[in-house]
């Protein structure tokens, strides 16, 4: 194993961890989507079949799962824009780390807007 060189753009620093997170969230969303299209296709079986399966999703455990999925999508989407800026904007590489903090900031703001409302729907309270 070569030892990590000091001062690269990527290895072992924020740039690498954001890449790992982008990968993990991308794969997670992909597998969700496979299942999601399958369960949505139950609308072609019968209204009863669809409502029965969707009904089993309406519990706190799945509610938290949905929150996790939304978090994955929000991170992947904002960080995806950051990747594009690194690629296409002439100053992109210089600001890649700053932009990661912007991504995290936007992530926190979006989730702060989403979570209370979603958890209210999941746990009753209207």
């Amino acid at each position: 194993m070569p030892s990590a060189p000091a001062g690269t753009l990527y290895r072992g620093r924020e740039g690498m961890w954001s890449w790992v997170a982008h990968r993990v969230t991308g794969v997670a969303i992909f597998f969700f989507l496979l299942v999601h299209v399958l369960d949505t296709s139950l609308v072609r079986v019968s209204p009863e079949a669809y409502d029965a399966v969707i009904g089993t999703y309406k519990n706190p455990v799945m509610g938290l799962g949905e929150a996790g999925l939304v978090a994955a999508v929000v991170f992947h989407a904002f960080n995806g824009i950051r990747i594009m800026l690194v690629d296409f904007w002439s100053k992109g590489t210089r600001y890649q780390r700053v932009m990661l903090w912007v991504v995290m900031g936007l992530f926190v703001v979006t989730m702060a807007g989403f979570l209370p409302r979603h958890l209210m729907h999941v746990f009753g309270g209207e």
Binding site: V43, Y50, D51, K58, G63, V70, V73, M120, H121, V122
Partner: peptide, 20 residues
């Protein structure tokens, strides 16, 4: 995600009638 999870009754409103 906004239309299906945030607007209206959110996730608890999703059923066949919603999709239709």
């Amino acid at each position: 995600l906004f239309v299906n999870l945030v607007a209206g009754e959110g996730i608890s409103a999703i059923d066949f009638g919603f999709v239709a």
